[in-house]
């Protein structure tokens, strides 16, 4: 093969893992998509009726299970949690956003591991079977002694590792999308987290969707003012990223200017008057929570059985 083509393909493959997730992020999800999955919307399905403390426990259990068991249990949980997105308000849109977020995480993580995992580890993970090479980069790609070789096993290995993150990411968003900050505050205070810490979390939950909204406005105005006007069309999504980075400082300054009012608003309504707060609707444990607890117990049991049967975390990942 022509040396130039080899180099071109090498760089394309190299950047694929970083560029493709960014492309998904900007093209398929968009800043407004991020706004939707970081904001609470009222609805009536089970997640919305669940006690936030139970959702937090569920998240911790999902994280522990994904970390302790074989990769396909994590993958299974990812699929199940993603399917439950369909029960959320505007479920199809949120399912699509969740799907693309999972794709982003999977591709990004796979690409972060696949080219850099040493043969020794791959051999161990795949019982010493022969590695199938897909692409060999020119020698100048060698980083800290790692072999510049992309193998099928490396990709599988990276994919399996990504399954440790996807389920917990999706579960965390469920908490944000289905609980109001006040509900979270109530639950966390009940388990003894200081009000000042939980209040910061509440403000963050209120602010994050706004950040996406304001950055979206900033980026669009930069486009109007000529950002990316001389670049080819296919590069425009990347200019969204450039615009978003440019917009961070004014957005933060804008939010900080408003933060003074937020502080005054809280202080003049007796915030932190006492160590604890009372609540108009004290957190209760309902039928949905009991069902969720049953699921949590079931998941823990399955995990224990899986680990005992040899499906625990460890090499080989590919089970």
């Amino acid at each position: 093969m022509n040396l130039l083509i080899i180099n071109l393909i090498s760089w394309l493959i190299f950047f694929f893992g970083a560029a493709f997730p960014v492309l998904i992020m900007l093209k398929a999800i968009g800043l407004t998509g991020f706004m939707k999955v970081t904001r609470f919307e009222s609805y009536h399905t089970f997640y919305y009726r669940m006690n936030p403390a139970v959702k937090i426990i569920l998240g911790i259990v999902v994280m522990a299970v994904a970390a302790l068991t074989i990769w396909w249990i994590g993958a299974l949980m990812t699929v199940v949690i993603l399917l439950t997105y369909l029960t959320l308000k505007d479920g199809k849109r949120k399912f699509a956003t969740g799907f693309f977020l999972t794709m982003m995480t999977t591709i990004g993580t796979t690409w972060a591991f696949a080219p850099y995992t040493p043969y020794a580890i791959l051999n161990e993970a795949f019982h010493g079977s022969a590695l199938t090479s897909l692409w060999v980069w020119p020698s100048y790609f060698t980083v800290m002694g790692y072999q510049p070789d992309l193998t099928v096993q490396g990709l599988i290995y990276g994919f399996q590792i990504s399954m440790r993150f996807t389920a917990v990411s999706l579960m965390s968003l469920v908490l944000v999308m289905t609980s109001t900050p006040s509900q979270v505050l109530r639950s966390l205070n009940k388990v003894g987290v200081p009000i000042s810490i939980t209040f910061s979390l509440v403000i963050a939950m209120r602010t994050v969707p706004r950040i996406f909204e304001y950055i979206d406005t900033s980026v669009k105005i930069q486009f109007m003012r000529g950002l990316g006007s001389r670049a080819p069309r296919f590069l425009r999504p990347f200019y969204v990223l450039v615009g978003a980075i440019n917009g961070i400082v004014p957005v933060i300054v804008f939010l900080v200017r408003g933060a003074k009012d937020t502080a005054i608003s809280a202080d003049t309504r007796a915030f932190r008057a006492y160590q604890k707060r009372t609540y108009m609707r004290p957190a209760t444990i309902g039928r949905v929570d009991r069902m969720a607890f049953s699921i949590i117990v079931l998941v823990i049991l399955i995990t224990v059985i899986a680990v005992l049967m040899g499906f625990g975390r460890g090499i080989p990942y590919n089970g």
Binding site: P181, G258, D261, R269, A270, F271, Y274, M280, R281
Partner: peptide, 28 residues
């Protein structure tokens, strides 16, 4: 305050109105 957007802290109207009395540790 002038700008309700920066003043309103909660996601639902009821929670927002209850925020102050809750801070005063009143009975539900």
């Amino acid at each position: 305050l002038q700008n309700p957007e920066t003043q309103v802290l909660n996601y639902t109207v009821e929670e927002e109105v209850a925020f102050g009395p809750e801070n005063l540790c009143l009975e539900s």
